[in-house]
Design a binder for these strands. Structure first.
Lengths: 161, 161
DNA sequence: CTCATTGCAAATAATTTGCATGTAA
DNA sequence: TTACATGCAAATTATTTGCAATGAG
């Protein structure tokens, strides 16, 4: 029911990953399966430590190096994208090849809101073409203050007294 | 002669910095002056180490911690913006409050091309308004393959033979 | 004189890597 | 059996911080 228009489904991602691994002669292990599973279950800007915690609920012996290595694998295979927002952490999300969503980030409360805007996509194509680039991916992040934090900033009457 | 339409000039940036420092009771030192000078001389996505190298040409005794601290200061004062592209380095650029330029990055040769597109700006405002956000800044990066690298990829005839 | 600033080196934090052992294929 | 994969701990890399000495106001 989350039905986004053109997004790739889990099955296709599994296929991508499988064929990538086959091509490179990589092996399927229970650790990798757990990690990929956990990632698919929580595909939005997860950090390594979040993922590790989740994965360890299933198999507490999994080491963090394996999570790092597997996420890098997912990124190489095109299934995941690496993201660095302001904090020092690398986060990963589903590559989501078509339904390009972008981010609106509150600089006060750090909330992350996603949005989609096809017209921005169109402009990107145009800009890329102008410079002769073939686009692989993009990041579009807007940093600002969310409605809640604006309200908080306006009504600090109690504190000011 | 680089005359971009609405960009803030150096003088204004110096003013911003000065009033920020005055407000916070911070002091002006020769190290800070050197660093700020070096930054203004090379304001596009410079890394700390690049800046440090340049600053040490003038005063070789300046420590790298000071560069880190000063750049953070510039960011807080609104004069500089922090940027993290793919590599592990934090880069800084002039905040450039109005002439919002964005980046087109070649994933092969790492070249960074800047572009400006007012229509993207307009759409951003619209999106922000839709979510009730007040925008402070934004990042818009497109990753792809530049014309040169496309050419290189197409003509490896010698290699393929 | 007072307190911010500096340089250095040590401390953190995130990520990567070497290696002996485990394990898909 | 033959590599690839894993877990651990040690290594790296980028950045931050404690502190005694220095210097601005």
């Amino acid at each position: 029911m989350t039905g986004s228009t053109t997004s790739i489904d889990r099955e296709q991602f599994r296929q991508m990953l499988e064929s990538f691994m086959a091509k490179k002669g990589l092996r399927s292990t229970k650790q990798r399966e757990h990690i990929v599973e956990a990632f698919f279950a929580q595909p939005d800007h997860v950090s390594i430590e979040e993922l590790l915690a989740r994965v360890r609920e299933r198999d507490s012996s999994i080491g963090y190096a394996t999570v790092y290595r597997t996420l890098k694998l997912l990124a190489e295979s095109g299934v995941a994208n690496e993201r660095k927002f302001g904090d020092g952490l690398t986060r990963y999300e589903l590559a989501d090849g078509d339904a390009h969503h972008d981010h609106l980030i509150c600089v006060e409360c750090k909330r992350i809101v996603e949005f989609e805007e096809p017209r921005v996509e169109a402009l990107q194509e145009e800009i890329a073409a102008r410079h002769g680039f073939v686009i692989r991916s993009h990041k579009h992040e807007m940093y600002g203050v969310c409605p809640e934090c604006q309200a908080k900033a306006k009504a600090p009457a109690a504190k000011m007294a």
